[in-house]
């Protein structure tokens, strides 16, 4: 069986509304980032992959298994939805055990794997705690543990770091990277920092269409030579914001240190900077005529 996810000409409709438009992707082993704004169609794509939504048109195969064969696909995929919890009165161990049974694991397999996984996500000490007493970060870690409980070939995580504090976010990203050593991990997010920190290959989804697919360095190269930094007065800021994409700013007394995108150096004091994923993403969205566009005079 192939160890890739193949998506060919996938179209997805909700009534007359088209949620995915002619999506073509090949996803290989390792971390794969799916980036896009809220409502871009990321969750729809995730749900098609985990067989929670029937595809309208096209072909989708997960490790050689068509998504139409739901039970086969479910056997080899783990899923961490964007919004989830578990029965609040169950303990951490009980919740894992229950989901383990639903994944078809034997008692012996559960006894071996659950403590190992809880150890790995740093929840072994909390195994007797009720789910309702867990913090957001602990719940997310438990979510990852349940998703890889049956040792799936594919792990699909949808917006996993939303609402986590910075420390938990870093811990969670590391956990995902470790998990990706032995399987395909698809990380769907609108947080560019998560992708930058974890993924080599990415796709950017906008209004149901894949507008970029490739490596992170390739994406960054699209913005190279177009990222500038300058210290300007506050009165100039509004004019700059009107004319181009300001990606960050830092107030320094009466002045502001701004980072922005432009095709050419717009004024002498602007210094060229090394592009990051966020810069490239913003540039890409503008190229697509998105809401983040800059005026013609600069871009």
């Amino acid at each position: 069986m192939s160890a890739t996810i193949e998506i060919r000409n996938l179209n997805q409709f909700y009534g007359k509304k088209q949620a995915l438009k002619d999506v073509n992707l090949t996803i290989e082993k390792g971390m794969f980032g799916l980036l896009g704004r809220n409502g871009a169609g990321k969750t729809t794509l995730m749900k098609v992959l985990v067989t929670l939504l029937p595809k309208s048109e096209g072909k989708v195969a997960v490790c050689g298994r068509s998504v139409e064969k739901a039970q086969e696909v479910r056997r080899i995929t783990g899923y961490l939805p964007q919004e989830f919890s578990m029965y609040p009165n169950m303990t951490v161990y009980e919740a894992m055990d229950y989901l383990g049974v639903l994944s078809g694991l034997s008692r012996l397999q559960r006894r071996q794997r659950i403590p190992q996984l809880l150890e790995r996500v740093n929840l072994q000490e909390d195994r007797r705690k009720k789910v309702k007493t867990l913090s957001g970060g602990m719940k997310r870690r438990l979510g990852i543990a349940q998703a890889i409980l049956h040792d799936p070939e594919v792990l699909i995580v949808d917006e996993p770091t939303a609402g986590l504090d910075p420390e938990e976010r870093v811990r969670f990203r590391n956990l995902l990277c470790e998990t990706a050593e032995e399987r395909i991990v698809i990380l769907s997010t609108h947080i560019v920092g998560d992708i930058e920190a974890t993924c080599e290959n990415i796709a950017v989804l906008d209004r149901g269409e894949i507008i970029y697919k490739g490596t992170v360095p390739e994406l960054i190269s699209m913005a190279e030579g177009r990222v500038f930094q300058a210290e300007i007065s506050k009165s100039e800021l509004e004019e700059l914001k009107r004319r181009c994409i300001v990606t960050s700013m830092l107030t320094l007394g009466n002045n502001v240190m701004v980072r922005f995108l432009a095709e050419e150096r717009p004024f002498a004091s602007a210094k060229s900077c090394e592009a990051g994923v966020e810069d490239a993403y913003m540039y890409l969205m503008h190229e697509r005529g998105g809401e983040t566009g800059c005026s013609d005079s600069y871009l």
Partner: peptide
Amino acid sequence: LRDRRAGMRDLIYARKGSSASI
């Protein structure tokens, strides 16, 4: 209603276990 209220529905739906056995 417990699965939906507990936010556990998708976790269960995505499992291998057959609908009949559940």
